[in-house]
Simulated scan of single mutants.
Amino acid sequence: MGSAYGRGRLHLAAAIDQQAVCGVGAFVELARLAERGALDFVTVGDASGRPGPGPGPGPGPEALAVSARVAPETARIGLVPVVATTHTEPFRVRAAVATLDWVSLGRAGWWIEVSGTEDGARPFGRRRAGSGDVLWGEAGEVADVAARLGDSREGDAGIREVGTGRFVDREKVRHADFEGVEGAGLSVRGPLIVPRPPQGHPVRVVDATEEDSRGTAARYADVALLRVADPAHADTVRKELRDAAAGFGRDPDELRVLVSLRVDLGGGEYAAEPGHGGGGPRQSAHGPLYRGGPVDLAELIIAWHRAGAADGFHLVPIEPHRDLERLVNGTVALLQHRGLFRTFYPGSTLREHLGLARPAHRYAVAGGATGGATGGAS
Score class of each variant (00 low, 15 high):
residue 192 L to V: 07
residue 106 G to V: 11
residue 90 P to G: 12
residue 85 T to C: 07
residue 228 V to M: 15
residue 68 A to K: 11
residue 141 E to D: 10
residue 39 L to Y: 08
residue 39 L to T: 08
residue 306 R to G: 14
residue 346 P to S: 06
residue 227 R to D: 12
residue 345 Y to T: 09
residue 78 G to I: 15
residue 178 F to P: 08
residue 203 V to G: 08
residue 209 T to W: 01
residue 305 H to D: 12
residue 334 L to D: 10
residue 10 L to K: 00
residue 326 R to M: 09
residue 143 A to F: 06
residue 376 G to D: 07
residue 331 T to N: 13
residue 336 Q to L: 05
residue 25 G to T: 03
residue 378 S to L: 15
residue 129 A to V: 00
residue 41 F to D: 11
residue 244 A to Q: 03
residue 78 G to V: 15
residue 269 E to C: 00
residue 198 P to R: 01
residue 356 L to S: 02
residue 197 P to M: 06
residue 220 Y to C: 01
residue 109 G to K: 02
residue 188 V to R: 07
residue 31 A to L: 01
residue 213 S to C: 09
residue 290 Y to I: 15
residue 372 G to R: 14
residue 149 L to V: 02
residue 242 R to F: 05
residue 351 R to G: 14
residue 339 G to A: 11
residue 69 R to N: 06
residue 120 G to A: 15
residue 96 A to L: 07
residue 280 G to M: 15
residue 174 R to Q: 15
residue 255 L to F: 00
residue 311 D to I: 00
residue 16 I to E: 13
residue 368 G to W: 06
residue 174 R to V: 15
residue 116 G to Y: 02
residue 118 E to G: 09
residue 256 R to H: 02
residue 357 A to C: 04
residue 335 L to D: 07
residue 193 I to N: 04
residue 165 G to Q: 09
residue 14 A to M: 09
residue 70 V to C: 01
residue 162 V to M: 03
residue 92 R to N: 01
residue 9 R to H: 03
residue 31 A to S: 03
residue 227 R to L: 11
residue 368 G to P: 06
residue 234 A to Y: 11
residue 197 P to T: 07
residue 297 L to T: 10
residue 130 G to A: 12
residue 13 A to R: 06
residue 192 L to W: 03
residue 330 G to N: 11
residue 191 P to L: 07
residue 345 Y to V: 05
residue 49 G to I: 00
residue 96 A to I: 01
residue 340 L to C: 08
residue 211 E to W: 02
residue 85 T to W: 08
residue 205 V to R: 04
residue 189 R to N: 08
residue 1 M to P: 04
residue 188 V to C: 08
residue 223 V to C: 02
residue 81 P to R: 15
residue 213 S to E: 12
residue 356 L to P: 00
residue 95 A to F: 08
residue 320 P to Y: 13
residue 78 G to D: 15
residue 102 W to H: 15
residue 43 T to Y: 06
residue 40 D to K: 03
residue 184 A to G: 08
residue 346 P to W: 03
